[in-house]
Write a protein that binds this DNA or RNA. Structure first.
Lengths: 274, 274
DNA sequence: GCTTGACTGGAACGTTCATTCCATTTCATC
DNA sequence: GATGAAATGGAATGAACGTTCCAGTCAAGC
């Protein structure tokens, strides 16, 4: 019998055979998949205690899969941690050690690391519930008003493109002739708006969002802190913290969020149309 | 004496005191920083052998830093691995397991994971040398022509904003009146162009880039494969592979690269102006 | 060249480890 | 309810572990 040598196939093996495991072995299986780090670092005794099982059961579990003993099984869990790539924090750290020596290259990797951490933190700051509610709100709108200026403007041009492909009616609140207010004149509570602004908040973005909010249009905002002037006038708002590199922020995390919103709206509309 | 409790400060401590360590202890210090995984998982005996040192030396090393013994030191190395977040590959893997059940939330995390892997791969696909050369070329230009359409268009609007703040003259090749060719009429070999296009390549982007290349303007491209029509007419080109999620691609990695280029150009100009 | 103190190698120690083994319990089957 | 196989708990075991200790080595200071 040849036991799985990498974590992924071990995981699949366990999931496949979960039905046939006896009670205690299933208990171990569940604990192992839920606390892989514990298996990697602990001793048979410590793991057994935490899993409310005898140490001998751990050995039996390993042997029932085909390993020689518990230690063989543990090796798979250790390799998993070993092969995990380094985090962005470590990269930024390593970068600051060598900054200045390498020149352009370190600018690139610095921006990459900053973008990576920004995207990382997205998953923890965006609450699934709020995301879903916002998507539902935006999907219901007849026309979507997109409000942004200056640095955030590319986000709305991108969204306008995406929504165009998704056949969703949008109005990009932007005009070379200064007729933005007129563009918003037809907005009603049946519509919705998505506003994007980061510190220092462009005053026109806030003004436009306010006009829409006053007209009863629900506003969803993407901004960078609870102190943003957009927060007060928004039904929902998302906090995106773009890490900077030398004072410059990329829009990577904002784009990831915007893309997700657009896809989710498309999906929501597709589902509800049926 | 209070020893460092996290890996980063331990690393700094070792680097600071590397001079004062006796020969064998320095040997351990170097090995520890170069093979942190080995320290985390190995036994005192196995590590000692690989580092060509006696096990007792490992204990002495730990004690000289302030730890009670080798095991205390090892705990720091283990925590480092424990706290390392999961990789995007694992997240995408986990996502595909549960896709469909969670709905909107999995769209968000899917896009986040896709954006993360895209950014990850940037650092391996962009060659530092080519990046630096391209930056030098672009920094030398009198006017920077920015060429992009459709999905890539937001990248150039963002770059136009960044370059504006950096006080670098740019011409966004884009017009609601169709006078793009006229916008490029003044371009000479003293200028440079940055073109962005992904499959399916907008024909006007390629046309505009060709016009500039014919006028002797050096063109740098951001695109997605060696088969891109932009490759042939470019002095240098960068490959950005945006991972898709359900057929949709965010522009996260492209924006990270664009930001890095803009910052590097600004830095290059600042340095050469002195 | 001798002395002194720090450093090092390696054996010895008690502890903890994974594993094995066996008595007991559990559960399906008749 | 009886029977037997499978599963389980827990003590026993020997190997491996981290640590300590001491004798030997080295280099600096006088």
């Amino acid at each position: 019998m040849k036991p799985p040598r990498d974590f992924q196939s071990l995981k699949n093996f366990i999931l496949d055979h979960n039905e046939t495991f006896p009670k205690r072995l299933r208990q171990v299986a569940v604990f192992a998949l839920e606390n892989p780090d514990e298996i990697a670092f602990g001793t048979a005794a410590s793991i057994a205690e935490r899993a409310a099982v005898q140490p001998s059961t751990l050995v039996r579990f390993a042997q029932s899969i085909g390993y020689g003993g518990f230690s063989d099984l543990q090796a798979v869990f250790r390799d998993r941690l070993r092969e995990r790539g380094s985090t962005y924090e470590e990269r930024l750290e390593a970068l600051s050690d060598t900054f200045g020596r390498e020149g352009g290259n370190s600018i690139l990797s610095g921006v990459i690391a900053a973008a990576g951490t920004s995207i990382d933190s997205l998953s923890s700051t965006i609450r699934a519930e709020e995301f879903n509610e916002s998507v539902r709100l935006l999907a219901r709108a007849e026309t979507l008003y997109l409000v942004a200026q200056r640095r955030s403007f590319p986000v709305t041009t991108y969204l306008a493109y995406m929504f165009g492909k998704l056949k969703i009616r949008t109005q990009l609140v932007s005009s070379p002739f200064g007729v933005e207010v007129e563009q918003m004149a037809f907005a009603t509570k049946k519509d919705a708006a998505l506003a994007v602004s980061f510190s220092p908040y462009a005053s026109s973005t806030v003004d436009h969002a306010q006009v829409l909010a006053d007209a009863g249009v629900p506003v969803i905002s993407i901004t960078d802190s609870a102190f943003s002037p957009l927060v007060g006038l928004s039904k929902h708002w998302f906090e995106v913290t773009e890490n900077d590199f030398g004072g410059f922020r990329s829009l990577s995390a904002t784009f990831a969020l915007a893309t997700a919103i657009a896809i989710a709206i498309g999906e929501e509309r597709r589902v509800s149309r049926k």
